[in-house]
Amino acid sequence: MIIALLIIHGLLAVALLGAITHQAIGVWLPARPGAQSFVARLRSVSTPSYVTAVIVLFIATAILGGIIYPAYRLNVRIVLEQYELHKANGSFELKEHLVAVGMGMLPAYWYLWRQPLAEQYASSRKILTTILAFIVWWGFLVGHVLNNIRGFEV
């Protein structure tokens, strides 16, 4: 059961990573009109269309992470401590705090992206989206590395 939840947690994280990364790229590097390359298409996404997906996926991924967290606490963290893998252990500690702070930012994120987009919020919209993207990337990479260290022996 925990393994199934861990896989679903990972899949949701991949979807969230894709959504927030597309949005962050689109908001910082909007495509020039007429460009048709792969990169141009990546940059030309409709950035507001990702907001609901990002919020729903962020909350769903965090809830699933919270459900499997006790298994990590009992079966993974203890091993990390025994093998003195302090950086891996600390990376996860930081992940839990970053995700918590990120969840608190979601109402502001939703508000800043509310249609019609307010021009005076453009800078804050960019920065807040980038911070959320950083949190998601940090969480994803740390989770991936820890899973590689411990595997599915949960």
Partner: peptide, 27 residues
């Protein structure tokens, strides 16, 4: 209460957490 606060204070809190957890990375 401008939108700047919605990312500035959380960013400082995140930096503070990184500082609080520095012992994990400096061993």
């Amino acid at each position: 209460i401008g939108p700047l606060w919605s990312w500035l204070i959380p960013s400082l809190v995140m930096i503070n957490f990184a500082y609080l957890l520095r012992s994990f990375f400096l061993r």
